[in-house]
């Protein structure tokens, strides 16, 4: 009778259970290893390539009617930049503020708000999607980024546009920044907005100028712009991931 304790069948059962447990444990260990996050990050390139194929005709993000707008548009991230520089701009109503456009351009520029408003304008009522999950619909007016880049005349090796901002998100965090590639930079709805809901852009929403890049999530829409830098790679900017939140683990491509 004792020999029957380990029959072939029960041996197989024990063996199978042990094998499943072993595979499960090995899987758990592998997924906890630091290198696994790198494997997970590969999904971002699949998403980028798939969406770029779907967006190759450069369709517009949906535009809404005034009756669709959020009664209150939530402000997120920095809502009042600290620091002497910004407070000085605020005191003089941004009359001394200018937007620098430099980097890989033949014609570096320094633009005042009056000059930006004399350029061609575009108004759009669009939905803003935060990475946290909420959405708000608002009306934006500004200069198409593509127009500014054409004026600046890109060098042949230009690949990305880096947006430098005036705000620290928290103490000693370093300044906010973002970047987009030329595919999104030249999209007709990618604008440098100075007005929101028919008013001058409020401080909480990025006064005096913010980016709208409508087919991506909210953290790409850099506020408090001070400088636009054209580069061939963003590896040398800050921690090298292309943006403030990208340096903290978020995807550079925020189309989902």
């Amino acid at each position: 009778m004792t020999r029957k304790l380990l029959t072939r069948r029960s041996f197989l059962h024990v063996g199978t259970t042990a094998a499943i447990a072993g595979v499960g444990y090995a899987g758990y260990r592998a997924m906890s290893a630091p290198g696994f996050l790198g494997v997970l990050e590969s999904a971002e390139y699949a998403t980028l390539n798939a969406q770029r194929a779907l967006l190759s005709g450069q369709p517009l993000a949906r535009e809404f009617s005034p009756s669709d707008m959020s009664p209150v548009f939530k402000a997120n991230g920095t809502t009042m930049p600290g620091g002497v520089v910004y407070q000085e701009f605020l005191a003089n109503n941004f009359s001394s503020w200018r937007l620098r456009v430099d980097g890989l351009v033949a014609n570096p520029m320094s633009l005042s708000m009056a000059e930006l408003k004399r350029a061609p304008q575009r108004t759009q009522i669009t939905r803003h999607d935060c990475v946290e999950g909420w959405s708000a619909i608002g009306k934006w007016t500004g200069v198409p980024l593509g127009h500014i880049l054409e004026q600046a005349q890109l060098a042949p090796n230009a690949r990305y546009v880096v947006f430098h901002c005036l705000d620290d998100v928290y103490e000693d965090s370093g300044r906010y920044y973002e970047s987009v590639d030329l595919f999104d930079a030249f999209h007709p709805q990618t604008i440098l907005a100075h007005s929101m809901n028919d008013q001058a852009l409020p401080v909480a929403h990025g006064a005096p100028l913010r980016l709208r890049v409508e087919r991506q999530l909210g953290y790409k829409h850099a506020k408090y712009l001070t400088r636009i830098e054209v580069v061939d790679s963003y590896k040398n900017v800050a921690q090298g991931n292309g943006g403030f939140w990208e340096d903290r683990g978020y995807e550079w491509y925020a189309g989902i």
């Binding site: 969406q51 779907l54 967006l55 369709p59 517009l60 993000a61 949906r62 409508e214 989902i256």
Partner: peptide, 9 residues
């Protein structure tokens, strides 16, 4: 929920 997919579909 994807703003990119929203533009294409």
């Amino acid at each position: 929920m994807s703003p990119g997919i929203n533009a294409s579909a």
